[in-house]
């Protein structure tokens, strides 16, 4: 799925897949940090965004 999104032009670093048990708090924090850094580096996403006119 990530591959097809990347093929369409959605950067790979925007989509992450992880398996974290409810007992793995440290892993959860580490992964969220890593994802945040990667997404921040890419900047805001403008693709596949739908705008609603109020």
């Amino acid at each position: 799925m990530g591959n097809l999104l990347e093929h369409m032009g959605i950067e790979r670093d925007r989509v992450h897949f992880s398996w974290i048990s409810s007992a793995e708090a440290i892993k959860f924090v580490d992964i969220v940090k890593e994802i945040s850094e990667k997404v921040r580096a890419l900047g805001p996403n403008t693709k596949l965004v739908k705008e609603y006119n109020e």
Binding site: E6, H7, M8, G9, I10, E11, K47
Partner: peptide
């Protein structure tokens, strides 16, 4: 690159 791919689709 990502933007050109997006543009293509």
């Amino acid at each position: 690159d990502a933007n050109a791919k997006w543009q293509h689709f």
